[in-house]
């Protein structure tokens, strides 16, 4: 089966600094794929470039057989890629309802949007009770739920998640990742960026290990969990 997303030889620079130095990777039609690695490995930069927030210096991003790396970011959303960005980045002074509506901004099908509201509430029941509250007043875990829910409102064909575990208590991390698996089981492929390699590799089917802007390892998630180098560097076990 052809992959839904293919990244080939991606290079991204911030001024003189090259943050991504030739990354190639794929996401299959029904997969959860994870990018793991430490700070500054280029994980977030890769996701931002896929969302067209950043422009690649070289390389290609191909989504459903078409290049998207020259498109503006709103057009990438229209094609079917939506992201729950690092640090959640919800709109703090907008209500929860307006935040969710923002995810559906590019859509013009009121019926579909209505049923996707229900889908999000089924995944995150707490959001229904918070609808009229301002986004900035939610707890960290609720904000993460809102960020994922907002991205789902775009009805993406590929969901990008950037560090959904960041700053959350272990119990909340478990709940979030339960939902991540659930979303995938409902048929949405997911590209997951994580520093928490343990939970990421337990959730994903495949993984790429990034170090200073390049892929140093790629394998089935289970194999990476057992890999000595990964255990030493990212799992904190010997």
């Amino acid at each position: 089966m052809t992959p839904i997303l293919e990244v080939r030889g991606l290079r991204v620079r911030y001024g003189a600094i090259e943050a991504v130095k030739g990354i190639s990777m794929t996401v299959g039609q029904a997969e959860i794929v994870t990018l793991i690695g430490g700070n500054g490995a280029g994980k977030t930069t890769t996701l931002k470039t896929i969302s067209s927030v950043l422009r690649p210096a070289a390389g290609e991003i191909v989504f459903e057989g078409e290049r998207t790396d020259r498109l503006p970011s709103h057009e990438v959303v229209r094609r079917g890629i939506c992201q729950a960005p690092e640090g959640r980045r919800i709109f703090p002074r907008m209500t929860v309802r307006d935040n969710l509506e923002m995810g559906a901004y590019a859509r013009r099908d009121p019926d579909g949007i209505g049923s996707d509201f229900e889908r999000v509430f089924a995944l995150f029941p707490v959001l229904r009770q918070r609808l009229r509250q301002q986004g900035g007043t939610l707890s960290g875990g609720e904000q993460q739920m809102l960020a994922i829910g907002r991205a789902l409102m775009a009805r993406p064909k590929l969901l990008l998640l950037d560090e959904p575990s960041m700053g959350l208590a272990p119990m909340m991390v478990d709940r979030i990742f339960e939902v991540v698996r659930e979303i995938n089981a409902q048929g949405t492929p997911i590209l997951l960026v994580e520093q928490n390699a343990q939970v990421a590799l337990q959730t994903a089917q495949r993984g790429y290990v990034l170090e200073s802007g390049t892929v140093v390892l790629e394998d089935e998630a289970a194999a990476l969990l057992g890999n000595d180098q990964v255990r030493k560097s990212y799992l904190g076990t010997d």
Binding site: S73, V77, C82, F91, P92, R93, M102, G103, Y105, A154
Partner: peptide
């Protein structure tokens, strides 16, 4: 509030 995120949500800035 946040132009970058708005763009990621499909807003034509």
């Amino acid at each position: 509030e946040d132009p970058e995120t708005a763009g990621m949500m499909g807003v034509n800035i």
